[in-house]
Design a protein around this nucleic acid. Structure first.
Lengths: 122, 122
DNA sequence: CGGGATCCAGTAGGATACTG
DNA sequence: CAGTATCCTACTGGATCCCG
């Protein structure tokens, strides 16, 4: 068989950019990363993700839940006990994102250098 | 040696989200992908990236050039002949992004299903 | 504790017209 | 051909207050 769709594979289509856009949102991946190892409650996540507001955490979690990346579990207690955990889908996303993050760490200094010299001459 | 910094590696820091944000911009990766195989001129890129306006293409290319991902070469002719090509940095980025794109294509249907059933119950 | 409702600022994205 | 200049809209991100 050997279909061989090498580097020339689509890669384009607007569908992919839908996911790229989600990944590029400010808090999405930081929340996913915070949940990587174990479930956490709302304010536990908030403490792990430095700088996030209640509002943005609530929005981000809701979006992730809607996408099926995070599972929300409400305990029958008062006050409410709500736990969030990654689904298999959410966990599988963190792998390629980790590749990207490694690239970022490896090349961010070069990018900043380029920006500085570009700004100096334009 | 085998240092073994497994899934617990940083991955966090705001620096990474700077790159993630860039990747998440609407046209950035589509332009990078269009330039993957060979240099192109402005309007050639515009034809390859369906739906992009002159304005957004100019902005995107300028940002990519500033980041050092794209090299801009002006020929000494009239009318101007301007060629854009990926730098080594730009080419190296497309590898991890391709991983993400493959993930996107593989799981986008599942995401849409989740969104539909979520919307139906909330 | 875990949110929702509201309001607000900044920016990404886009349409159109003009220019060297 | 390869942009720049304007102008506008929509959405992201955030601060604050309120509620069960």
């Amino acid at each position: 068989m050997n279909v061989t769709i090498p580097t020339t594979a689509p890669l384009d289509c607007s569908q992919v950019s839908e996911v790229l856009g989600r990944v590029g949102e400010k808090w999405t991946m930081q929340v996913v990363i915070a949940l990587r190892d174990q479930p956490y409650r709302f304010n536990e996540i908030k403490r792990h993700v430095r700088g996030i507001s209640q509002q943005m955490l609530a929005r981000t979690l809701k979006t992730l839940e809607r996408d099926g990346m995070v599972k929300r579990t409400v305990g029958p207690t008062a006050p409410p006990q709500v736990e969030y955990e990654l689904t298999a889908l959410g966990r599988s996303l963190s792998a390629p994102v980790r590749q990207l993050a490694q690239w970022a760490r490896a090349h961010l200094a070069a990018i900043h250098d380029n920006q500085l010299s570009y700004d100096a001459t334009h």
